[in-house]
């Protein structure tokens, strides 16, 4: 359990948020052109990193907005939070 600094609402308890998994997985531009392997890669395969991971979160019980987070999954320390569409800050 940790505190998350929502870019819209400020610091809130983690249980107000929903984790949305790995960030920056781009939706295929031409879905009809994709091979089965590419679909599997897009839909299912994840880096699942132990360490610094880029992920999406949703303030589900707050403003309900999505944003990105850089978090160390080995100790749950949050390194940076940035809005959707923004370039990830260097850490």
């Amino acid at each position: 359990m940790f505190v998350i600094n929502c870019p819209y609402c400020g610091e809130r308890d983690q249980q107000e948020f929903k984790a949305g998994g790995e960030a920056h997985i781009e939706r295929p531009k031409q879905p009809t052109e994709l091979s089965d392997d590419e679909w599997a890669e897009y839909l299912f395969m994840r880096k699942n990193i132990k360490g610094i991971q880029y992920e999406r979160w949703n303030h589900a019980h707050g403003c309900r907005k999505w944003f990105n987070m850089i978090r160390d999954t080995s100790n749950d320390e949050i390194k940076a939070i940035y809005k959707m569409g923004e370039k990830p800050p260097s850490i």
Partner: peptide, 18 residues
Amino acid sequence: GHSSVIANMAGIRLPLES
């Protein structure tokens, strides 16, 4: 839970979340 860590060492990806 550490399967992905080993998979990343081998350069493959797995459909897992830990």
